[in-house]
């Protein structure tokens, strides 16, 4: 019986999705109920992930069509960012991605940040296929709603396991902001390595971030908050922002209010714990 119900749900989803896909210029926002997926994914398993062999081989043009460099321009003057060590074989972009929302979920933060940072490329990275598809459809619809002003051209979403493959997407010092919003708490101690923050994994965040860049974290689980603070503070490449700096940062407010999880926690009168960390300069060799 359950099987039959499941089937029909899936069928409905497929019908909805295919009809949604055929209307290419659709400005109708996707409906979440057709993109449900269980909340957890195992970051250690192989999945069937698609990821670039290296940052240089990553083709961003399909994600940010408005930022693809025109042919003549790219031939005449390669953009400054790209010339910094990378010889791109793919389509040249006028800008590089600078902000990553890791575990972006249904994309609330991206959508909220897009108009606030119109000249910055933001990418949401999500491990669950259905959810990634939702955000991609959502962005498509938003772009179609705003054909004139070019809004939402600066955000995109892709499926990735960042715990394994973050450096495949971004060069050293490429990012200025990383968001880790309401990550999977992985309550059991045995599962703690599956957490998105750990001292050793923080080395990878430090690698892709430029000095001065900021990691934003928020969670409703106090234990996880303490864990993230402890592990970032234990990492010599990061220092925690003071409360004043935090409140002065517009992104913090957006993160608290505009993410889907943030709204849910508000509805439930839950607590929200935020902490931000600045990427420090690497010390000289000993």
């Amino acid at each position: 019986m359950e099987e039959a119900q499941h089937q029909t749900k899936r069928q409905k989803r497929e019908i909805y999705r295919s009809s949604h896909k055929t209307e290419d210029g659709s400005a109708e926002l996707p409906r979440k109920k057709f993109y449900r997926q269980r909340a957890h994914a195992n970051p250690f398993s192989d999945h069937l992930l698609v990821y670039p062999e290296s940052p240089a081989s990553m083709d961003w043009s399909e994600y940010y069509p408005a930022f693809v460099q025109s042919q003549q321009a790219s031939a005449a003057a390669p953009s400054e960012e790209l010339s910094s060590g990378v010889t791109s074989t793919t389509n040249s972009m006028t800008k590089r991605v600078e902000v990553a929302d890791i575990g972006c979920g249904f994309g609330g933060l991206l959508v909220a940040l897009a108009p606030r940072m119109p000249d910055t490329l933001l990418v949401g990275m999500e491990i669950r296929t259905q959810v990634t598809q939702f955000v991609q459809d959502r962005i498509k619809a938003l772009r179609n709603q705003n054909p004139e002003n070019g809004e939402y051209q600066n955000i995109a979403c892709l499926r990735a396991n960042t715990m394994k493959f973050l450096p495949n997407f971004f060069d050293k010092s490429q990012l200025s902001k990383i968001f880790l919003c309401f990550p999977d708490p992985h309550f059991k101690a045995r599962k703690h390595k599956a957490r998105i923050v750990s001292t050793t994994l923080n080395s990878e965040y430090a690698y892709v971030m430029r000095p001065g860049g900021i990691v934003y974290t928020i969670t409703d689980v106090e234990d996880l908050h303490n864990w993230m603070v402890r592990h970032f503070e234990a990492h010599p490449s990061f220092e925690r922002l003071s409360k004043e700096e935090e409140t002065a940062d517009e992104c913090v407010q957006v993160m608290q209010d505009e993410t889907e999880e943030g709204k849910k926690v508000t509805r439930n009168n839950g607590n929200k714990y935020t902490a931000c960390f600045r990427r420090l300069e690497d010390p000289p060799w000993p």
Binding site: E53, K164, F165, P167, S203, A206, Y207, H235, P236, W285
Partner: peptide, 25 residues
């Protein structure tokens, strides 16, 4: 196993990743 070769500094600065060698498939 995920195709990476990572270059890190040795302790006491092992938290600093210097490079990755990308190319293995």
């Amino acid at each position: 196993r995920d195709e990476h070769i990572r270059i890190s500094r040795a302790p006491p600065q092992a938290h600093i990743i210097e490079k990755f060698c990308f190319g293995h498939r």
